[in-house]
Design a protein around this nucleic acid. Sequence first.
DNA 1: TTGTACGCGTTATCAA
DNA 2: TTGATAACGCGTACAA
Lengths: 353, 353
Amino acid sequence: MGKNQPQNKKREALNIPAGRRVTSYDVARLAGVSQSAVSRCFKPGGSASAKTREKVLAAAKELGWQPNALARGLITQRSNIVAVLISGNVNLYYPEVLFALTHRLSEEKLRVMLFTVDSEDDVDPVLDQISQFQVDAVISASHMRREHAERFEETNTPLVFFNRYFEDRSSDVILCDPEPQTRQLVKRLSDQGHSRFAVVSGPATNMVSRTRLRGVRAAVEAEGGTIITEAPGDFTYESGAAALHRLMECTERPTAIVCANDMMAMGLIDEARTVFRLRVPEDLSVTGFDGIATARLASYDLTTIRQPIGRMCDAAVAVLREQLDRPERTYEKRVFEGLLIDGATIGPVPDVY
Amino acid sequence: MGKNQPQNKKREALNIPAGRRVTSYDVARLAGVSQSAVSRCFKPGGSASAKTREKVLAAAKELGWQPNALARGLITQRSNIVAVLISGNVNLYYPEVLFALTHRLSEEKLRVMLFTVDSEDDVDPVLDQISQFQVDAVISASHMRREHAERFEETNTPLVFFNRYFEDRSSDVILCDPEPQTRQLVKRLSDQGHSRFAVVSGPATNMVSRTRLRGVRAAVEAEGGTIITEAPGDFTYESGAAALHRLMECTERPTAIVCANDMMAMGLIDEARTVFRLRVPEDLSVTGFDGIATARLASYDLTTIRQPIGRMCDAAVAVLREQLDRPERTYEKRVFEGLLIDGATIGPVPDVY
DNA sequence: TTGTACGCGTTATCAA
DNA sequence: TTGATAACGCGTACAA
């Protein structure tokens, strides 16, 4: 075998030097038509007689030619590339979103250029890349400051936020607001006798975390319960485990712990079981947010509020498509409710209390 | 706010119509130099006097200009895009590889175009996209038939296989062969009194699964044990759970079950604990392959063999870089050993047997 | 070091 | 429907 130049007979017949790429001109020569005819045959709705089209398609297949997307993008001002910004960290929520988005985008003939953003410092170089590659649009499910978002405004690049946005800046947003389900969840806990709650939050600056917390506080108050303490976490499994230690030091212990995402809930549960020898839910009720696949595994069977990721990704792509097709559109915010997942991590308040 | 054209004063001063993109010509005009001077200032090693460079960079910054990667790719025949083909299914091994690869590639100034491939039928359209976008190279961690791989040969697109390859076709390959650790693992089980093994395999056509199985069979034989039965799985959590049911029907039950990946091991363990009320490892020893993050969570603490994903991704990118810089290189296969992870899912063979 | 001129491979325009 | 020709925005010989 080895790495030789392709030995295509047709190439030789057309005198295409090895190493040079096959172009639409070559296809045109082989088909006996003009180059522009070839181009039209590959354009949806391009006018060409059945006979021409047949010849061209045959020739293209023969030579293994496909239109060069770079050249096409240069002239059409459309790269058909969408940048997806996502956190590369260990929260298993992100891969689920990423794969769902990729799937939906490919149905729209859009390609995903992937960027992982783990801190706000990562954003600037990523924005440079995005602008260099002339991406048609950006979906951001990661950190971003206002001034970053404004750079897209300047280049008229549609930007769709996924589960985050700026209160004081309009933009396209896909959101899950699980407030109704949060009330439902807290009510369920309250009905089971819980009144002393604790909360494990995400980063203080994180909007998702803040929204969830606000919902939990309101729901607990509505039920007449008390949030004894709020322990800070950072959405990681480890921070959930660490938070439990702080909660266990409270003189008056909580009987139900609401975590701002599933990863922390899982960490907290594992710590409760292995280190503190607490049974969940017999001794302690724990809940999460997100509804990631891992939290559904039988070892956790977490009671949580699922984000409808599939629908949200559908929406993100639909909004994006709309922005691409009608650039004068106004902004839109689509808010989805969550879905309460009935797991096995909450139960009646223990007698001992 | 709203979606107005950018109101850049400099744009107006240069008479750049709204809607037209800023080009290197605009930068050149503003800097008072030629377009090629601008180009050179953005080329590493391009010759330009300090003064020129200063003016150009200032002008570029003023206009928010960045070189157009599409146009650059067209002329240089280098898109700086790498296609990553990965399975979009629920095996949590893939996101880990994907994020690690993305990280490494970005250090090489290469962008990731992501393609999810869940069955061999998905491959053809993906290959079309890949060839259209003139990607510089392809990393494949998903299904692919030989004829697919050959298409890359034809276009001289470097292809690096990640944990799979064709026996009868040379190519660049990054591989984890955990054979030594498999022996180690089986020996450890054997030392703890196990002699009746069961295996839960992956898809019969899957190379990774076949290799792992071969290793397990050899190791068990070497230790004088017996593989009582092999249950087929498909690398998913659910198939691991299902496999246990088949294994429990054996008249002579296995005491140690080796699963071909972590996801199945986790499914099997959960099923054992919740449905069959078996304790792991007291009643049953279970092991996996991969060493994914989820398997390390305290609820599982799986005994498994980790793939050195970080090193493997480093290697994949290094091999790819080599292919890009020296196209006449020959193929290379880099094989990494695994790392035995001492979890808590294996133990002495139970007395009752 | 600098500028001129050309070409990368396509789509868009327009006259035929 | 078809073909000639002009962009798209850049990198790069080559001459100055």
